[in-house]
Design a protein around this nucleic acid. Structure first.
Lengths: 236, 236
DNA sequence: CGAGTATTTGAAGATCATCAACTGTCGTGG
DNA sequence: CCACGACAGTTGATGATCTTCAAATACTCG
């Protein structure tokens, strides 16, 4: 039901210096876009970019966190645990997303790698410093916080009001918007980098219900194909 | 199932000038606590404090919003609608809470008064201005955004993983923390300023299920009393 | 190729939703 | 002041959806 591995990823090897920033494909969407050349001199000293192995955690619920993480490559799962071990997946991170917006003594959720990934670490002490010269950084954090909040509200509506089929359809649509692509035949291929259990835990359904719902969507033609790691939906 | 009244409350009469701020009971928890005497000169010109009648909306989902609202008195309901009219209540605001953290062309949710209340309106244009001199304002907005996000995540866990009884118990505990008080007999009285339907729409349950669950909690002694506008829980 | 894991499928059961009727409460007006 | 009407909340009976438990099948990695 849940992944026991909660080992922190801090000890991963360094994976390149900010010289990379110039060619970073997620930079435009990220905190970094608010930094000028002068700030990048500082970034060079403080930021680190690291490989994160599958199942390693960036942050663990209840443990302190002092960095902001920007996903350069890979996918991450955000989750919270109930005392009795029930797990709720609260979101997924893809390229360009970030987590850990504030330094804290007790993280509100756990962020774990769904596969091997690449992440930039920005210590908050450093961010506070550069925010003095680059006020856009704080504006971006406010905006980001709003966006996350609104996504959470959509999730609340999904869990509070939608039935199993609607939940699955909404989920696929969401992933499609984020990382779907045209297959050769005028349909959209939607990768599912996470196991069924994670999707079920996101949707507030049991694994079996999710599986049955996917099958029924395929049989009714609303999904053209269902495989372990992707689904195909008719073009919109 | 839903309240049709979505009339905006803008036209309500003015209810006092910032001279009131000196004695404002929610000031310590609010944006205003980050403002110095110099900023208050500006506040005096731009902020307005208004009575908001029961069922009037501060913000309406999908419509533009340009102010931050601080609840001085009264309770508010935050909600989102699905296209087919199903309504999900996403939260409640009490004294000192605020809504409308960013100016937007399309509000993500509706905020409506559960009873007659009193609200301070801060135009965002003004907030941006004073944030230049009072950087604490932005930090507070970031922090607030985080807090709201974490509350939303708790709501997600509630809807995704808890059964009806757990949901109701969690809800009562939450309201208790916020506005519960000791009754004379060593128990806690928890006001429920919102109708059952709003609670049900918050908890992702049907009205009838909520009612049955409250009854069963009372019969099992986990609630000492259940009335329309409050419940009583044994001291923690 | 084979072991272990992930996913699907099946059958039975529980929880919550639905439909319907009843009761309690509040405000208004005779 | 009480009666009435309207609305809010509770209770009952039945049913649908989703869960649970169980087993079979498909996939992945060494």
């Amino acid at each position: 039901m849940e992944t026991p591995v909660k080992e922190k990823a801090r000890i991963c090897p360094d994976a390149g210096r900010p010289a990379n920033c110039d060619v970073c494909e997620v930079r435009a969407n990220s905190i970094c876009s608010d930094l000028g050349p002068r700030e990048f001199v500082q970034v060079e000293k403080t930021m680190s970019r690291r490989h994160v192995a599958k199942n390693k955690a960036l942050m663990v619920e209840g443990e302190p966190n002092d960095s902001l993480y920007v996903v350069v490559d890979g996918c991450f799962r955000l989750s919270k645990m109930l005392e009795d071990g029930r797990r709720q997946v609260t979101g997924f991170l893809f390229k360009g997303d970030f987590a850990g917006v504030r330094a804290t003594e007790a993280s509100a959720y756990t962020a774990e790698a769904l596969n091997d990934g690449l992440v930039c670490y920005f210590p908050h002490s450093f961010l506070d410093e550069i925010a003095i010269d680059a006020p856009g950084v704080k504006d971006r954090l406010i905006r980001h916080g709003q966006t996350e909040y609104h996504k959470a509200q959509d999730h609340i509506v999904l869990l509070g009001k939608k039935n199993a089929e609607e939940r699955v359809v909404s989920f696929i649509a969401m992933i499609n918007e984020r990382i779907g692509f045209d297959d050769g035949n005028g349909a959209r291929r939607v990768p599912l980098p996470m196991p069924r259990q994670d999707i079920a835990d996101y949707l507030g359904l049991r694994l079996e219900t999710l599986s049955r719902t996917l099958t029924s969507l395929r049989e009714s033609g609303r999904l053209l194909d269902v495989t372990r790691h992707s689904v195909t939906v008719p073009a919109a």
